[in-house]
């Protein structure tokens, strides 16, 4: 019984540590990567994985079902919302033409797609062209 608690504590600590490291790597990417879109992907993927590892570690250390449920809720909403945020950032970046240093190799979105999904507000200029 007691050994199991110690094992769970140990694994929990390792998960907490690795989650923190993964989140840190995401932040370093956020600072060092060159443009909006790569930075945005650095801000979402490692952060989500970091949250996942952190909550798993916390769950192993708390070991109560109600807390595990709450943590599962945290993970659920994290998984659901961070792609949406990343998508909005990417969409704005594309519409304002901030898609990296050089011109785009190709842009399938250049002419179409906007009227069907956007529909709101005035049309921006032909952004992100090659």
């Amino acid at each position: 019984m007691n050994t199991w608690h110690e094992v769970a504590d140990l694994i929990g600590s390792l998960l907490l540590l690795s989650g923190a490291l993964v989140a840190l790597s995401g932040v370093i990417g956020l600072l060092r990567l060159p443009d909006v879109l790569t930075r945005s992907s650095a801000a979402t993927n490692p952060q989500t994985l970091g949250i996942l590892l952190l909550t798993a570690g916390v769950a192993l250390r708390l070991r109560s079902w109600v807390d595990v449920g709450t943590l599962a809720l945290v993970v659920f909403f994290q998984l659901l919302t961070s792609p949406v945020a990343a998508h909005l950032v990417a969409r704005v970046a594309h519409r304002t033409g901030q898609t990296g240093a050089g011109p785009l190799l190709r842009d399938d979105l250049a002419g179409q797609g906007r009227q069907a999904t956007g529909g709101e507000g005035p049309e921006p200029d032909g952004s992100g062209t090659g």
């Binding site: 993964v22 790597s25 995401g26 370093i28 990417g29 600072l31 060092r32 990567l33 060159p34 443009d35 879109l37 790569t38 992907s41 650095a42 993927n45 490692p46 989500t48 994985l49 996942l52 594309h94 898609t99 990296g100 240093a101 050089g102 011109p103 785009l104 190799l105 190709r106 842009d107 399938d108 979105l109 250049a110 797609g113 992100g128």
Partner: peptide
């Protein structure tokens, strides 16, 4: 997610390379 985290980490630690062209694909 693990694979892409490793990719992002390597890329951000690997110094500033010359940026390669990107594309938007349908």
């Amino acid at each position: 997610m693990v694979a892409s985290s490793i990719t992002v980490t390597l890329r951000s630690l690997g110094g500033t390379r010359r940026p390669r062209p990107a594309a938007v694909i349908a």
